[in-house]
């Protein structure tokens, strides 16, 4: 008993540390590290539904990657993903910034209204997707009904079943989902700007636009970069919203990379190609994360 008491705190802490992180470590090893490594293994072997039932699964090098990279559907998905990501990011960020500039001012019910906006972001994406699917429905959707009742009936359209408009629609829905979160993060950034800067600038005769251009924009640059990188990662994760709105259709018009991987893996059970596709898909968020971490380090170093 007394011996335990005399064990230095640091040593006891050390032991406890390993003990405490053990459950988390085991969990991460079993559910994250192992599956990801298994994915790498699958991507360089010939694994299919029949091989899973007890056939041979020989090593086949980069053949699966080659077959994905020569699949026109993969490149179509790359293009759709790029359009989806750029469209979503630009609009989410711009609208989120505008809303943040509105909500940075103190006014009655500010907190309540902000929370209501944020609630839209917290709705399960499957629910938001279902809403938009119903609103954009060609026969009975609210959007077409609105057009008809305002005399713009000629513009009514089968929004989600026409390949030329479906992608724009899922992008619009994703913008709707992402705006509140962008606003929230940008608000945090705006709160970090010293109000005395604005007062000094106003005293010097700077107008509202000048204050925005010369103070807000440059000082928000680091936060904006972080928000955009984070947005890139989250946009690349989007699956549910598109899945319920269009299922990737019509004719692959909205098949982003994650839906492509789903198709290959879970619809055609081409496990090896699916695994290879999944790893190719992973490169984009990995690069974004590396940039994000570098930015954080840089900020900490200069702060």
């Amino acid at each position: 008993m007394s011996r335990r008491r005399t064990t230095p705190l640091a040593v006891r802490r050390h032991r406890t540390g390993y003990l405490f992180s053990l459950p988390g470590l085991v969990f991460l090893a079993l559910l994250l590290a192992y599956p990801l490594l298994y994915n790498v293994w699958t991507s360089v072997h010939a694994v299919s539904l029949s091989s899973r039932l007890g056939g041979p699964e020989p090593f086949n090098g980069l053949a699966n990657y080659r077959s994905v990279l020569t699949d026109p559907a993969f490149w179509r998905a790359v293009r759709v993903s790029a359009l989806f990501t750029v469209g979503s990011l630009v609009c989410q960020f711009t609208i989120g910034f505008a809303l943040a500039l509105l909500f940075i001012r103190p006014f009655p019910f500010n907190g309540l209204l902000r929370s209501l906006l944020l609630m839209a972001w917290l709705l399960p994406p499957i629910v938001s997707g279902t809403l938009f699917r119903w609103m954009l429905d060609g026969d009975s959707g609210a959007y077409n009904a609105l057009l008809r009742s305002t005399g713009l009936g000629v513009l009514t359209h089968d929004w989600l079943t026409d390949p030329s408009t479906a992608l724009a629609c899922v992008i619009a829905a994703n913008i709707w989902v992402g705006v509140p979160f962008n606003m929230l993060l940008l608000l945090v950034g705006l709160h970090g700007i010293d109000p005395e800067l604005y007062e000094a600038a106003a005293l010097d005769g700077a107008g509202a636009w000048q204050r925005f251009r010369r103070i807000t924009l440059p000082l928000m640059r680091p936060v904006s970069a972080a928000v955009l990188l984070l947005g890139l990662i989250t946009t690349f994760k989007v699956f549910d919203l598109i899945f319920v709105m269009t299922g990737g259709g019509p004719v692959d018009a909205t098949t982003v990379l994650s839906l492509y991987v789903y198709e290959v893996f879970f619809r055609f059970f081409r496990f090896s190609q699916g695994a290879a596709g999944a790893l190719l898909l992973l490169t984009v968020p990995l690069i974004a994360a590396a940039l994000y971490v570098r930015r954080l380090r840089h900020e900490r170093a200069t702060a």
Binding site: L32, Y38, S258, F271, A275, A278, L281, P285, A289
Partner: peptide, 16 residues
């Protein structure tokens, strides 16, 4: 890394 994984990347190996 876990935070940036698109769910499908993990769902595929977990399925097997």
């Amino acid at each position: 890394i876990a935070q940036l994984l698109p769910a499908i990347v993990l769902a595929a190996p977990l399925f097997i």
